[in-house]
């Protein structure tokens, strides 16, 4: 899984993921997400190129979101496809991490 980061206005960090968020994908991005979760407080994650999300990927997201939340930070996802959206709803994670329609909505959710 590929991960890239881009600084946006207002101290927002945009993280773009690409590839399946399965056991291998989670291994690829676990450390970067841990660093982000420990240092940043306004993070939006572009899911456009993530067509598969397994529970091990959910774990990475929740761990980072909790770390951010402990410091008052917020994470929001956007452009989430049908299959990953279903996983986030089934696990209830969409109640603690905002799942938004597009980038402006995600920025608004964390600002």
């Amino acid at each position: 899984m590929q991960i890239s980061q881009q600084e946006l206005d207002g101290g927002v960090l945009k993280v773009t993921l690409s590839g399946p968020f399965d056991i291998a994908g989670a291994a690829d991005v676990d450390v970067p997400f841990s660093v982000i979760g420990g240092r940043r407080d306004k993070v939006i994650v572009d899911f456009s190129d993530v067509d598969f999300l397994a529970s091990i990927g959910v774990r990475v997201l929740v761990k980072a979101a909790k770390s951010m939340g402990n410091r008052g930070g917020t994470m929001a996802l956007f452009n989430v496809g049908e299959a990953p959206r279903k996983v986030l709803a089934s696990t209830g994670v969409d109640t603690i991490i905002a799942v938004t329609e597009d980038e402006p909505s995600a920025i608004a959710a964390v600002s």
Partner: peptide
């Protein structure tokens, strides 16, 4: 899950299988 603070980090896989 009731809140971000109290949420467990893992343990979602079994529920996903049962729900799906």
């Amino acid at each position: 899950i009731e809140s971000l603070r109290s949420a467990q980090i893992g343990g979602f896989g079994i529920k996903l299988m049962r729900d799906t």
